[in-house]
Design a protein around this nucleic acid. Structure first.
Lengths: 192, 192, 192, 192
DNA sequence: AATGAATGAGAGTTCATTCAT
DNA sequence: TATGAATGAACTCTCATTCAT
């Protein structure tokens, strides 16, 4: 019966992703069970808590993303990954709505993959050397959230990504002059 | 008794901001009433629906931000505004969590204020001329969302903002080469 | 200020009749106050309880009916009164929905008027002599209730009244043969 | 567990009939649940809406009556049925109070059964031939309503029924002379 | 192991009634 | 006396979770 159980687990996860993606995290567990074709009791046997279910689905999603990131590489891998994620953000409302249900391990996994991409981009010269992984992750998450809540059209998405990419690529060292109580900057990121 | 009513209205709004900020939009109306020190009926007399309350609080917040933006200006007004907002993002979970309750008018107001700041920054040369207001708003919202959900520390926040600021300031024209199916890396952000 | 008070009382009663007639007895007092153009406090000053208001409106209505009955008379007065009442039953949902809020005095008043009509009809020979007032009232109330809840059309109303009128007029003495566990009657109300 | 569910369903219906019969349709769902000995959630699992519950109980009641009618017959079946119904009217406030929740199918069922009884009575000669089913139903409903709201004693009930029975049996053709605009109106029940 | 009926706290909302102004 | 804001119990309904079958 191990096979049955495993299959159910998968069906539940798939159903949960579908439901929470479209109806948001406040959708009912019962609807998930219905879509998965299992009884509510079965669902709770596999995931004792709704949060557990949310965490599981988030974890799986992040793992998938990490894996996807791993298949990319080269000078523009990071850029491609960014764009793909942002494009899917709305569809994957989950990533976003469930951010609270932190799953550090899974996030770490994705972080590593992104770190790899970052390294390669820097080696290739498409991203400046003093950018570090945490801020890249921060930007990634931010843009996904923004895309989700903002309902961007393609145009806006491109223009927004362009600004971020430009920031990642700019030759000048990252500004320090602008920080805190604004003194009197000439050009931000100006001098070579 | 008009005075009492007005005072209660304020207390309810304050309480709502407090509660929804900390517990999210799914916090209960009764908790708001309790914190405001009014009976539940009073709350519903002022805001016949929970959504009405959410909309009211969001509207007030956006108006406040727009006003704040209006007091800024000059070369770095936009940057300052960005930083302030992001700093408050966690505290102002509301702006974020309630994006659905759309209050177009209020949003438009903020957009205008940001447009002003953008114009001034461009005139001063701290932001490149081909950046437009929509993407600036998109970045603003994204970073707030990210800051909120990501729990950034000060360091990370600064580094993330720096990247965005650099993107807004970069002299090179916004990339076109990287858009869409990435063909030929080589020139991200232009000069080698 | 006695004049004001009296005028308010009238306006409230009128509004109440209007509202309860159309929305049923479960309509809100506040709506009555709104239609009457007075504050809710004023309404409750005049009628300390919703039931008091319902009783007042019922009493007024019954008095009005009694008065009208008094203007009728002759061989067909009772029949006319019956028909009029039933015709209006739906419109005067009040009489019906509020029957619980018994106002014995007012009912007595109407009862007397109906008794008068009955007497005249019997004298004229349009209603048989052994019919008494209580059953006439019972029939009157029943038909009003039925008309209200049943949503009769004109045709059905006429046919139903016809049966009752025939019963009131039948030459034969009121059956006794049919009462209780049915024995084996030949004709009901048959033999003279 | 299908058995349990079914038993609960029955208990809920029984409790609902009891409660709504005594307290009217505005009685609370929770009281029904309490009397049924189930949790409120169980009640709503079986009847997702209060109206659903009301409809179910009404339907069951009407079905029961139709069935009862079907066991009767002969010359006096209709009369017996009338009397029984009126006797139970007070106990069956439900039939009455819930008329709004219309369950056309169930009503139709009862109508048919009454039609059968009517036919038999006419064949037997205890009811005149030109009476039709709709007015019989109308009288039935009216008398139930009247009995319910009027709180008739046995005597009054008998005398009232006698009048109606006489009307159903009278040899004379149904009046036509009395119909329509009886000369002198005045507006009965209209506000002055 | 799976089922799905039962649970019951809690949510949003209404409304008769009170009371400070 | 009139006003209308405030009150708070009560109501219908939802849903995460438990548990008998």
């Amino acid at each position: 019966m191990r096979a049955d159980a495993q299959r159910n687990q998968q069906r539940i996860l798939d159903a949960a992703e579908e439901v929470f993606t479209h109806r948001g995290a406040s959708a009912s567990t019962e609807e998930v069970a219905r879509l998965a074709g299992v009884a509510i009791g079965t669902l709770f046997r596999h995931f004792p808590t709704k949060d557990d279910l949310l965490a599981a689905i988030l974890k799986r999603l992040l793992a998938r993303l990490a894996q996807e990131a791993a298949t990319l590489g080269g000078a523009d891998g990071l850029h491609i990954f960014f764009r793909r994620l942002v494009e899917q953000a709305a569809a994957k409302r989950t990533v976003v709505a469930l951010a609270d249900v932190s799953v550090p391990a899974a996030v770490g996994q994705l972080g590593e993959a992104v770190g790899q991409l970052l390294g390669q981009a820097q080696t290739a010269g498409t991203v400046r050397g003093d950018v570090r992984q945490p801020e890249v992750m921060a930007l990634l998450v931010s843009l996904c959230q923004g895309a989700l809540h903002g309902g961007w059209d393609v145009q806006l998405q491109e223009r927004t990504l362009d600004v971020v990419f430009a920031g990642l690529a700019a030759q000048a060292p990252l500004a320090g002059s602008l920080r805190r109580p604004p003194p009197r900057p000439g050009a931000v990121g100006g001098r070579p």
